[in-house]
Computed example of a mutant assay.
Amino acid sequence: MLNFLSRRTMKGEKATAKTSLLESWSPGGFLRATLRFFQFVMAVVVIGLYAQDLRKAQQQGKYADAKWVYAVFVGSLSAFLALVFALPLVKSWMFFYLDALVCFFWVVVFGIFGRMYLPLKPDDDEAARDNSPGVVRMKRAAWIDMTNMLLWFFSAVYGAFVFWKWRKERTVFTGRAESHV
C-alpha cells in the first residue's frame, strides 16, 4: 500500500533541476519578489517617519493628527500586504485590484503631505517657527510617499497584465487546452 515510502520517491516524480527552488524562479517571479521587498522596506520607513510625530504628540499630551494616523495606517497596510503577497504560494497577480487600492491610498498620502510640505523652504519664517529639520524630514517623507505610490502602481499594472494574460490561456476547464495523446 505504501510502496513509495520504501523507495523514498513517488513514481514519476523524480527530482530534476526544474524542481529546485532557484531553477524554478522565472524573471517575473524575481521581479515580483524584488518589488514586494522594496514595498515592504519603504512602508516600514514611512511608518518610522510618521510614527515619531505621533509619539511626540502623545508625550506632549496633544491629540494625534488624523493625517499622520492615516499615513501610519497606509504604511502598515502596505507592509502587511507586501509580506503576504511576497509568499511563494500566493498568486498576488490575482489581487491586482488590492494593489491598485493601496496605490490610491498612497496617492492620497502624497497629496496631503506633498501639499503641506513640498512648497515650504526650510528658511521660511513659518518653517523656522515649526523647526526646520522637521520640515526637511517631512519633505523627504513626502517624496518617499511618492515612491511608495509608484511601487504599488507598478505592481498593480504588472498584476493586471499577468491576470489578463492568464485569463486568455488555454486550460482544461475552458475546453481550449492542448490534447495530451
Rank of each mutant, 00 (worst) to 15 (best):
Q59E: 05
G175H: 12
K11H: 04
F38R: 04
D145L: 03
G159V: 02
K168D: 14
K168M: 14
F4K: 10
K14R: 11
E126G: 05
S155A: 15
G111E: 07
L101F: 15
D125Q: 12
T19I: 05
K62G: 00
P88H: 13
L21T: 07
K121N: 13
R8C: 06
M116C: 00
T9H: 12
G175F: 11
F154S: 11
L151H: 03
L89P: 00
W106F: 14
A177M: 14
K121T: 08
A156P: 05
F154M: 13
G159F: 03
A79S: 13
T19D: 08
Q39I: 00
A66I: 13
Q60N: 12
Y97I: 10
A79W: 06
F95V: 13
K62L: 11
N131L: 03
A141N: 09
T19C: 04
N148A: 09
L150P: 04
S78T: 12
R170I: 04
V44A: 14
K62S: 05
R170K: 15
A71W: 09
G29K: 15
W143Y: 15
N131K: 09
E13A: 12
V136M: 11
K56L: 06
Y63D: 14
A51G: 01
M10T: 04
S20H: 03
R176Y: 09
S155C: 02
M42R: 03
F73S: 14
D130G: 06
V41R: 04
A51C: 01
R170T: 09
F96S: 11
T16P: 02
C103G: 05
A15N: 05
V108M: 12
P27G: 04
F161H: 12
I47M: 07
V136R: 11
D123G: 03
F104G: 05
I112T: 14
D130Y: 10
G29P: 05
S76A: 15
G111R: 06
R137F: 12
F80C: 12
G175W: 08
L35F: 02
W152D: 02
A33Q: 08
R137M: 14
A15F: 08
A128G: 00
K67S: 15
R170W: 10
P133W: 03
N3P: 00
K91C: 06
